[in-house]
Simulated scan of single mutants.
Amino acid sequence: MELYLPIAELPMNVFILIGMGAAIGFLSGMFGVGGGFLLTPLLIFSGISPAVAVASVSSQIVANSASGMLAYIRKKTVDFKLGSFLLVSGIAGSGLGVLVYSLLLKVGQLDLVIALCYVGFLGTIGALMLVESTRALIAQKRGTQLPVKRPGQHGWMQKLPLRVRFERSRLYISVFPVIGLGVMIGFLGALLGIGGGFIMVPALIYLLRVPTTIVIGTTLMQTLGTMAFTTLMQASANQTVDVILGLCLMVGGVVGAQFGARVGQSLRGETLRLLLGLLVLAVGVRFAVDLIVTPTEIYSLSGTGGAS
């Protein structure tokens, strides 16, 4: 069943689109991440322009984040004060990201920049996750335990000014690393079409030492606000949000996430991080291969619009 995507300007099988959403939803539910960093490349590899893929995935991330955040609010595991700092700074970063996105779109360099960012970004994150999870698995097999820093131990951050107390997370830290983290995630989310959860979650745990029980709900609060803002900005400023594409991905994502969550609960944390690291690294390598290998059609005609 073919479905025409008006903004992407190409027909695609509706079941393939729903299947993509379900596959990424399954991985999201299993690994506890938003999945935008996997869904955006998958759409690009399927023939959808990077401009439309990045903008349309933002709408799907909003729906997933809203659903997840409601569940964590009911569990009372959201630090609204910390989330507010991350949200406000994230919106500022998203605005900057949309501005850079628009400039790159006008000069015709958006596709190249997105590919290069995914190669460097996912390659680095994937390699770090792979190393960390492998060390944990080896230590577990040997019966040793890696040193774990407890919440509240921040090292160099204790010396920074303008410290604020976040009672729910049991933190008393400077607002500068919090704001910096929010701006960075918001910027990357707007430019690359990622929710940023796979960066925000480990950053809050290992950098700010936020208790693990608070991290995911607080991250979803920031992701929901920044990606909703990004979607509105992309739709109004660049007209690159394909609503039909986003709806198909949402339907599949909701179903797939339920099955993924069940599978994820049966796996060890170290195993999940190892699998996720391999997956992230594989996507980065795929982008690198596409940049190096000579394309089938060396010369092609394309405009600089969002749907080219």
Rank of each mutant, 00 (worst) to 15 (best):
L128K: 14
G186K: 02
I138K: 13
L278W: 10
A257N: 12
V251C: 12
S169V: 05
A51G: 06
I216C: 00
G29A: 07
G306S: 10
V243R: 01
G93M: 03
G264I: 03
A139G: 09
V289M: 14
T134K: 13
G68F: 04
I214Q: 10
F85Q: 10
V54S: 04
L301Q: 13
L105F: 01
G120C: 09
M69S: 09
T77R: 14
G260D: 03
I44H: 05
G252P: 10
A127D: 07
S302D: 08
S28F: 08
I138M: 10
T296F: 12
I244Q: 12
S59V: 12
M1Q: 13
P151G: 06
R262P: 10
W156Q: 11
V283K: 06
L103Q: 14
S84F: 15
M233L: 12
R142F: 07
T226Y: 05
L267R: 03
L249T: 10
T40D: 09
S67F: 11
A55V: 01
V215E: 01
F37P: 04
P177D: 03
G260V: 02
Q153P: 06
P161W: 07
R170W: 07
S49E: 09
Q109D: 11
T296H: 14
F121S: 13
L208N: 02
M184S: 14
T231N: 03
V164E: 13
G277D: 00
F198S: 09
L162P: 00
P11K: 03
A190D: 01
L43W: 05
G252Q: 06
S266M: 12
P202A: 00
G47H: 05
K75P: 03
L224T: 05
A22I: 03
R142W: 03
P177E: 02
I216F: 06
S65H: 02
S169T: 08
I205V: 13
M250R: 01
W156L: 13
I73M: 12
L105R: 03
Y4A: 01
E297N: 13
I16P: 11
L17D: 06
A66E: 02
F26A: 04
G252A: 05
G95E: 04
E297S: 12
G195N: 01
V201A: 15
V255C: 12
V175S: 12
I214M: 13
I179H: 10
G246M: 00
S300E: 13
M1Y: 14
T304W: 09
G277A: 00
Q222M: 13
S56A: 08
L171W: 07
L3H: 09
D111Q: 14
A307R: 12
M12V: 10
Q239N: 15
Y101F: 15
V255N: 08
V113M: 11
Q222Y: 02
R273K: 15
G19V: 04
G152D: 05
L275S: 04
L110N: 05
K149Y: 11
D290P: 00
T40Y: 06
L103S: 14
V54T: 14
V57Q: 09
L278I: 13
V263Y: 11
K141E: 11
G29V: 04
R170I: 07
L99S: 14
L82I: 10
T271Y: 10
L245V: 00
L249R: 05
M227N: 15
G108Q: 01
R268C: 04
V254K: 08
V98A: 02
G34T: 07
M69E: 09
V263E: 07
T271E: 05
S266E: 11
L10W: 06
A228L: 11
G123F: 03
G21C: 04
G143D: 06
M250D: 07
V263S: 09
G155P: 01
